[in-house]
Nucleic acid binder design. Structure first.
Ligand SMILES: [Mn+2]
Ligand SMILES: [Mn+2]
Ligand SMILES: [Zn+2]
Ligand SMILES: [Zn+2]
Lengths: 165, 165
DNA sequence: TAGCAGATGATAATTATTATCAATGACGGA
DNA sequence: TCCGTCATTGATAATAATTATCATCTGCTA
C-alpha cells in the first residue's frame, strides 16, 4: 500500500556533484560545446530542487554570471532537455489544452507534434485509490501522461536524441 | 498485459448529447448563468475529440456565433474546468518548468500554488514495461502527475468546487 | 595557434493569456 | 410578464513567456 512516496531533497548535493562531473564527458559525446554558461545553467538547475521556471534559473545563474542573457538561459534549458541532461516537467506547456471528456482517463502525447489521444488504464487509477493524502498533500486525482511518437512523426524524426525519457 | 488501450472517438456523439442535455441543470445547481456562449463553447469542445486549444475552440464556435469574443472563449473554458464540465489537460501550462533530476520519477502538483514535488512510485513504471508501442504510437516513457492541494493551499481554499478530478 | 561552426548577448517580434470597463442580458422576485 | 440587479460579454489594452534575429564572440579541432 505504501508503494508511493514523496522524495525529500536527500542526497541532492552528491547527485549534483556527480552530474556536473560527468557533464563535460557527456557534452563531448554529444558533440556539444562546453561553455561556462551551460555549466552554470545546469548547476543552477541541479541546485534548485523545486522544478524552477526559466526566470528562476536566470536569477540564480546571474549571481555568478551577471552578464548572461535570459535568452541563453531559455536556449540552454531546452538544449539540456534535448540531450537528456534535464527534463521538462511540462511537455505541453506552450498553450492550454482542454478536454470535454470528464470521465477519468489518461493521455498519450506525441512529443513532437503534441497530438493528444485518450488512454484507458484502470490500473493507474487503483494505485492511489485508498489514499486521501500524501505527506502534506491532500490528493485530488492523478493522470498519466505517456510520452510517445506518433507514426507520422516517428518517420520524420529518424535519428534523434532522447528529448523524453 | 493489455490493460492499457487507446480510446477511439466511439460514442462521442451520444456522449456529447448527454452532456449538453444535463448542462443546463448543472449550471442551475452551480448557480451559474446559462448563456448561448457557454453552451456553444461546451458544444464545440465536445465536438472536438482532439484536446483543442482555445483558438481552435474559438474558430469552431465562430461558425455559429460570429460575434463571440476570443476572451469569452478563454474565460468560458477556464470556467467549465472550474465547475467540472471540462478538464484542462495542461494544469502546469503557464510556464515551462524544468527538472535537473533525470532519474525516472513522478510528480505531485499543488493545483493552486503549482508547487511540484518529486514522487516515487515504481508500480507506475512497470505498467508499460513490456510495451514498445500503443496503437500507432511508439512509446518513449510515461510520467504520472498527481493533482493535490498542499497544506497551506488547502487551508486557504476552504469551500471550493472541483477544479481538478 | 588559426579558422570555423556553433554559441552568446542584445534586442525586437510574436503570441497566449489576463485585465479593464462600459454595455448587455440572464434570472429571480414582484 | 416586467424589472432591477448583477454576472457576463465584447472590445481592447496590457502583460508576460518564449522565440527570432543578427552581429559578435569563443570553444574546439586540426
Ligand atoms: Mn482526454
Ligand atoms: Mn522532479
Ligand atoms: Zn506526432
Ligand atoms: Zn499549494
Amino acid at each position: 500500500m505504501t508503494e508511493v512516496k514523496l522524495l525529500g531533497g536527500q542526497g541532492r548535493g552528491d547527485y549534483a556533484q556527480a552530474r556536473l562531473a560527468e557533464f563535460v564527458a557527456n557534452c563531448r559525446r554529444k558533440k556539444m560545446a562546453v561553455t561556462p554558461q551551460r555549466r552554470a545553467v545546469l548547476r543552477a538547475l541541479l541546485e534548485s530542487g523545486d522544478h524552477p521556471r526559466a526566470d528562476r534559473v536566470y536569477a540564480r545563474v546571474r549571481r555568478e554570471h551577471p552578464h548572461i542573457s535570459l535568452a541563453t538561459v531559455h536556449r540552454t534549458l531546452e538544449r539540456l532537455c534535448e540531450v537528456g541532461e534535464a527534463r521538462k516537467v511540462t511537455p505541453l506547456h506552450e498553450t492550454a489544452r482542454y478536454d470535454g471528456n470528464t470521465r477519468p482517463h489518461h493521455h498519450v502525447v506525441c512529443v513532437r507534434c503534441k497530438r493528444v489521444e485518450d488512454l484507458e488504464a484502470p490500473e493507474f487509477d487503483t494505485l492511489l485509490a485508498g489514499r486521501q493524502t500524501l505527506g502534506e498533500f491532500h490528493l485530488l486525482g492523478c493522470s498519466v501522461e505517456v510520452r510517445a511518437l506518433c507514426h507520422r512523426c516517428r518517420k520524420r524524426t529518424a535519428g534523434r536524441s532522447p528529448s523524453a525519457a
